[in-house]
Design a protein around this nucleic acid. Structure first.
Lengths: 225, 225
DNA sequence: GAGCCGCGTTAAGGATTCGTCAAGAATCCC
DNA sequence: GGGATTCTTGACGAATCCTTAACGCGGCTC
């Protein structure tokens, strides 16, 4: 089910959108200010953000920019401002679409469908990864080593996701931290050290001499299949 | 250069859009009816289609549907019809965006940028550089020599970044020092000597007789692919 | 030809980062 | 509620990297 984050300071609009979207089969999360929206987007996976520009705390464009620092989630802007400048600013900041109030619900839904059509994951086919010492099923969340199932925690999985989906490529510590914990944790390289050690202990044949999760000192980590 | 196909039956609009888009660095192809548009899209590679709904031969929505049978190219619809039904029809047929006439040129350009931003990305150009004795993957931070991976430190990479991104160009010592260590170190040419030696030892076949990292005495260094 | 300057090379100290362990806090599940 | 899992946080040696100094070499100037 696609999860939509709706951000608006008007409780009536928020309620109306929530009901309409849910009736059309979407999951809905709401926020009535910019900070809450950014926080929510960092915590739950979101398919689309529907964003009102007129927020009480932060300017809407600012929300777009800060969201774009670490996320590619599509953003559909709602706004009472008809001015061309406002539209250009929001779109260039990283928004994907812009509707002016008052808007028709049918149009909003159609534009949401158009956006989602494009972002639908090309293939959630079984993402299987195999190395010389273990196998992973990313979509099924299963790990196997020497025939024995290995239990991994949620955080360990999300780290694996990022690393394994970019094999042999260097993943910066910042990248990992912002993808897993959110942009506010971009400096907590402590976490990475702890979790990389756990992953190695659970998956590597010789945790002290890793051959698949390689650390590049001063930069980040790299997955070697 | 991004190629845009503009479809409109009004020659004035066609001409105006052509001039504006070209002025902004896009390549432009035009068509004044639906059949010509479909034909043109099939013949030339197109990055975006800008489509007027009111065409003389085929209905605009029909053009979208027939285009979508074989192409995923983004479609931006222009239309004089403000009705919600028209928008929903066009968007659900496969259009990506919908602007009603009269529209601001700035808005059109911003929406084009928003669409292109999303579709250009998957190209994910791997910045690969190859010489006769080693290969570099700048984005993946991978260096290879004679089939063996070479480990480079962060500072070594940032020097490589500057040199390799300007092949055959002379990079002065000041440039290198300020780009890598910051402007305060612009006189510490000591560092450069140390690190250029390390890079040569790691990448050159004969470090004593470098063929790719060439020093221009008294000036700086030059990368020769 | 003596002295100076810029470059290449090497090695050692210091600073930073990494791996590891463990314990308390938070969360989840029954 | 209570127990178990998971997450956070701090501290410590060990490994890695950066900085710095010293020395040799060749070319240039005087």
């Amino acid at each position: 089910m696609n999860n939509i984050l709706v951000v608006d300071d008007d409780p009536h609009i928020l309620k109306a959108l929530q009901i309409t979207l849910k009736a059309h089969g979407y999951g809905v999360t709401t926020a009535d200010n910019g900070e809450a929206a950014l926080l929510s987007a960092a915590q739950h996976p979101v398919a689309v953000v529907v964003l009102d520009l007129g927020l009480p705390d932060i300017d809407g464009t600012e929300v777009i920019i800060r969201l774009r620092e670490w996320s590619d989630v599509p953003i559909l802007v709602l706004s009472a401002r008809h001015g061309s400048t406002d539209k250009v600013e929001a779109l260039d900041a990283g928004a994907d679409d812009y509707i002016t109030k008052p808007f028709g619900l049918e149009e909003l839904l159609a534009r949401l469908r158009a956006i989602l059509r494009r972002t639908v994951e090309p293939a959630d086919e079984e993402a299987l990864v195999a190395t010389s010492s273990f196998t992973l099923d990313l979509s099924g969340r299963k790990a196997n080593r020497d025939g024995d199932d290995v239990r991994l925690t949620p955080t360990e999985w999300s780290i694996l996701d990022v690393l394994v989906r970019n094999p042999q490529k260097l993943i910066t510590q910042q990248q990992l931290l912002t993808e897993v914990w959110g942009p506010a944790y971009a400096k907590e390289s402590n976490y990475l050290r702890v979790y990389m050690a756990q992953l190695r202990r659970k998956l590597e044949p010789e945790p002290g001499n890793p051959q698949h999760f390689i650390t590049e000192p001063g930069m980040g980590y790299r997955f070697q299949p």
